[in-house]
Simulated scan of single mutants.
Amino acid sequence: MKILHTSDWHIGRTFQTHSTLDHLQTVLDALVEVVREHEVDVVAVAGDIFDSATPSADAYALLSGTLAKLHATGARVVMTSGNHDSATRLGFQSEWTGLAGIHVVTGFDQYRTPITIDDEYGPVHFYGIPFLEPALIRHHYPDELLKTHEQALGLAMRQVRDDLAERDGRSVVLSHCFAAGVTASDVERDISAGGLDLVPASVFDGPDYVALGHIHGRAILSERMRYSGAPLHYSFAEADKPRGAWLVELDAGGLAGVEWVDLPVPRRLRVLTGELLELAHKDEFLAFENDWVAAVLTDQVRPLDGMRILQKRFPHCVALEHRPAISMSAGPSTYSDRVAHKSDPEIVAGFLEFVRNGVGLTDFERELVADVLGQNPEGAAG
């Protein structure tokens, strides 16, 4: 059996206020072609299908269209809800879509009944564990201590192993969580009030393969336990991370092999560093004109209209930071100590030099300051 492991589609998420629906459509169409080309039997989507609990009509249309295309390949689909999804909305009419081979698992205990799909070697049981928020499920288990995600998933996996012990065949688990051994990026939001609630990898002992979601970068915790990451880049911190999915193969004995399959990047992400005029005019930056650009300007004085000037060359420049090559140190003394014995012109000159990172007054500015202070000595008194 061939399984394509993907996750974190985040349909509807914006990138720096720009819609990503068209780019995600391109990537998911490519994913459908991977399924067709490799004759994938099952597509496993490990949570965060939507980016919001209240998806837009366009987001629903993209998901419906993608599922229809996957169904046309002959593949089955197993997907779970993540912390960004509304389990109720995502699971709406799931009992009917299951009849078409599109299995959407959102119920808090729905994983206890696996989705069983046969191949030439026998059954493969898919246990889809939706995102389990301890505070929302603990009342269903009054005899269990459920305060952390480790405890919630520990309970779920004990139930999975108990069920599996009564069945013949191989098994795959889908889960959406932070598993120990991975690092979150700035687009993965905390899933508990106290910060990241890590789940030890040992919690997932047993299944032949564990398809994880929630981390937006590809990660391998073990040969049988992996994150596929998101299909799109949603942050400049992810710019160098590959986008794709895991192609998993099971044979009669269980896990036979795992291969990475790249997906296209509709628009690359690039962080460019340099002075404004260099970025705006030098030929070495020509190759990046169609990329998403985050610019770090090293000019000593913050340029006026920096973003407007950059966007003439880089239409998709969406972030700007001023980081001078040389920074002035304020020193240990307080501002009042530093100006106590200075004249008004010296105070103005010192202030401008400080905010302009060491660039002093020009002759014209010095004359202008002296002229203004000379004309308005009362206003100049501090």
Rank of each mutant, 00 (worst) to 15 (best):
A53Y: 02
T54N: 14
P55E: 08
S56L: 05
G65R: 13
T66D: 06
L67D: 02
A68L: 12
L70A: 03
T73R: 10
G74V: 07
G74A: 02
V78S: 02
G82S: 04
N83F: 00
D85M: 02
L90P: 04
F92Q: 07
Q93R: 13
E95I: 06
W96E: 13
L99R: 08
A100N: 08
A100D: 11
G101T: 05
Q110E: 15
Q110V: 05
R112I: 04
T113R: 13
I115H: 04
I115Q: 09
V124D: 07
V124H: 07
G128K: 13
I129Y: 03
I129K: 05
I129D: 02
P130R: 09
F131E: 02
L132Y: 04
L132W: 02
L132I: 01
E133S: 11
L136S: 14
H139P: 00
Y141D: 07
D143I: 02
M157W: 04
Q159A: 11
V160D: 04
V160L: 10
R161N: 14
D162M: 05
D163V: 03
D163L: 00
L164S: 13
L164A: 15
R167V: 00
G169H: 08
L174T: 06
S175C: 06
H176E: 04
C177L: 14
F178C: 03
F178N: 02
F178T: 03
A180R: 14
R189Y: 01
A193F: 13
G194F: 10
G194I: 00
G195H: 07
